[in-house]
Design a protein around this nucleic acid. Structure first.
Lengths: 342, 342
DNA sequence: ATTGACATGAGGTACGTACCTCAAATAGCG
DNA sequence: CGCTATTTGAGGTACGTACCTCATGTCAAT
């Protein structure tokens, strides 16, 4: 019992192949009654369109665009590599993608990049950007053009984006809080929180989740106000150095942003390194090394490979007007410690 | 510049389509010199075979078999569901799979099931079974028949299996040990270890990893000898109840096996539940609930969806005589706590 | 009953590859 | 040189679907 084909449908519904084709591809010119007959045949035979044959016939290809910041943190380059990697194995999927980079500090550059995109040569856009009014407008224009959009890593909920690919950042912050509390144990003291920017929605959400858990489950620990570093290593170095000097009661540091290099470097040479629990985000060479050295205690991470593959699947589906299996597209919050480092 | 096709190759190499086809499919009757010409064209044009078109033409389908125990633990049924789920979305991949179940206690049943498989109607086999001499022989016969084999979840290293799909269980045990030590903190006491069977290689490896880390990094904690429960809930209940009664110094329990139901049930009603760190394996309804109730502190898990999809990919590749990207097939050791429960 | 709008059928070509047959060209051999 | 064995070319069909054209069928309003 091989898979039923369009010919089986035609036979069963008592119509011609052309009519089946019209129904399957929602082309006009078929009576409602006939449509029902064909749909009945589809259901009873359990017909599923052979997507590969369909794409072959249709000469369909998906032209996707990834819009990424040029932030000097390893996470972004890891994301770039994952896109390149995914692209390699996706020649078979008739998918091509290009990466557009925008300068992190310059919102106009981003908007200009987005304006350059056109429905005639792009089938979908994935964006990793902060949620500013400029971005909102540019995305609204793309949507008006009928281009599917997914937000990547950091959500853009008020822009009309079709989907968000990334972790639940509140839960990620809660997870960081849970581990921080458990690792600190019944010692009391203060925890420092370092964010990259209060503009970045993912950072804000993580901080929120972190505070929820710390206040709820570990009240003996005092969580200090956020220090903003704008992904600048010099700023980070100064902030951390000052804080560690002035506050001997620090027992933990939570690095909310995507970069941890400067932080790790300062801590490596600090006398109290053993006594301070360090938890950060994103698995990169920096955090990997820090875990191995026992300098970091845990890293909360999102698998960039999964993110990129999910973005591809979602954009292809949206571009075909298909639904997605949301359950399958959920990105897990990964906890990485010294021992489960791959 | 669309993808080059076989016709472009023929044109470039100055040969006919038939010759290109002979070279691509390694058919005989082509001079060495001509083969080189075609291969040169392949490289310079960057030709990649359109696998979907090829499969369409070839009418290729993959008939896979999953061999699973009937152990009464939720993990196995989760695995079953994941296979069914994967199968749904894999109609497009021309892949069909059936599940063969063998009775856990009866090695002959397993061997009989394996004997029934034949190269004429199966293109690959995935096996989740303990490593016994019977199993070894049966697998050797399948291999001799030319059927690709992957071991699932628990490795079968001395059977000639083509690949192992699952986590590094030593690292998984080490991860459990790391968390156990960190969560216990500087309290001293004893940790109970519950395994399902010393025959199951994954259990043995996890125990090994656990001991490595406990001895190396947390020497103040005393790790007790393994208690075997053979996946029997009554046995588990008795073992735990007795141990908790006799040893008030227990500060942690590590459940090595795939099932945790009985253990969780005993602990739920125990007076010292707050004081005992409980770490187990595999995310199921039982362990999910236990995490939510703060009864379990962490679960080390392997994503069954990933495992099944990886098994599919590997078997398809092996069946086509292709290589696999081992890096892409690595299954991560997931740490799940209350807060990153999906 | 005629007209026109719409519904359907029949048949074709195409996508990129696999695989087949048969004839023709070429190479290697004595 | 001729002979045979091997290599190559030409052309076909097939896979399952998309999409096109043109002819014919049906139906309701006039």
């Amino acid at each position: 019992m091989p898979r039923p084909t369009v010919n089986d449908l035609a036979k069963m519904a008592g119509v011609s192949l052309a009519t089946v084709d019209r129904v399957l591809n929602a082309r006009p010119g078929v009576r409602e009654k006939t449509v029902r007959r064909v749909n009945l045949a589809i259901e009873t035979l359990g017909y599923v369109r052979d997507v590969t044959a369909a794409n072959l016939a249709r000469q369909r290809s998906y032209r996707l665009v990834f819009v990424l910041p040029d932030a000097p943190v390893q996470f972004v380059s890891t994301l770039r590599e994952a896109i390149a990697e995914s692209l390699k194995s996706s020649v078979a999927d008739r998918t091509e993608a290009k990466i557009v980079t925008f300068s992190n500090g310059n919102p106009h550059a981003l908007v200009k990049s987005l304006r350059a995109l056109d429905a005639s040569d792009t089938d979908g856009v994935a964006i990793f950007a902060p949620e500013t009014p400029h971005v909102r407008d540019a995305i609204a224009r793309l949507k008006a053009d009928g281009i599917p959009i997914v937000a990547l890593v950091s959500d853009l909920p008020n822009t009309g984006r079709d989907h968000f690919v990334g972790i639940d950042n509140i839960a990620a912050g809660r997870t960081a809080g849970f581990l921080m509390g458990k690792f600190i144990g019944n010692t009391s003291g203060s925890v420092m929180v370092l964010v990259s920017s209060m503009q970045a929605r993912d950072n804000v959400e993580r901080r929120l989740g972190f505070d929820q858990v710390m206040a709820g489950s570990f009240p003996q620990v005092d969580v200090l106000p956020s220090l903003e570093n704008h992904d600048d290593e010099d700023v980070t170095t100064r902030l951390i150095t000052d804080m560690l000097r002035d506050r001997p009661d620090i027992v933990g540091i939570y690095a909310v942003g995507h970069g941890s290099r400067a932080l790790v470097n300062v801590l490596r040479d600090h006398e109290r390194r053993e006594a301070i629990i360090l938890i950060g985000h994103e698995l990169t060479q920096v955090t990997r090394d820090a875990l191995r050295e026992d300098l970091m205690d845990a890293v909360i991470s999102q698998n960039v490979g999964h993110i990129v593959r999910s973005a591809f699947r979602v954009l292809r589906a949206k571009s075909d007007g298909l639904d997605i299996f949301s359950a399958q597209e959920r990105i897990r919050i990964e906890i990485v410690v010294r021992e489960n480092l791959i």
